[in-house]
Amino acid sequence: MDLTISIIVGFMILGALYAIHARDLLSSVIACGLVGYSLVICFLLLKAPDLAIVQIVVDTITLIIMVAVVLDSSREESYFKLDSQGYISAITAVFLGLMLLYFYSVSIQSLDVLGKSSLRMAKHYIEGATQKTGSANLVTGVVFDFRGYDTMGEAVVLVTAVLGVLTILRIKGKK
């Protein structure tokens, strides 16, 4: 299973790279879709159906909205030629990314495989959460009862983003 997931993650990386490089915005959007749908398969293989459902519907809707917007506006990406400062910035970014990757690979060596060791907090969710919350679906029990305050925050984040979109897309700012 590790091998399958590695291959899918490889596809995701290829899709993301193509999405950056494509000159046509429509193919770039569809490459983003590749990333999202591969993630759905990863979630299913890792036995997380709740996440997979949310990911697949969100990805579909995002794709539809993005395609509608791209078809209505321009399909060509405006292209800037890099000047010397741009090259310096790009090299710095690549360098920092590689450094992050290196330190990441060094620091995960001492960690155990996630999910295979004794859990400190989630142990008490798994044992008897059904009786405590009354919910047959454990994920809903955790999301809306043990950590309901976080979920309220996430719902508010979505509303904040919508209000922000409506604010920024006004035509006239001042009277």
Partner: peptide
């Protein structure tokens, strides 16, 4: 994690408020 959630609320609203005048430099 709760810190992260509420940080996102305040940060996203500040993105929108910075561009409240919708002039090009503000955007």
């Amino acid at each position: 994690f709760n810190i992260f959630v509420f940080l996102e609320i305040s940060v996203i609203s500040s993105y929108a408020l910075v561009a409240f005048g919708v002039e090009s430099n503000e955007l």
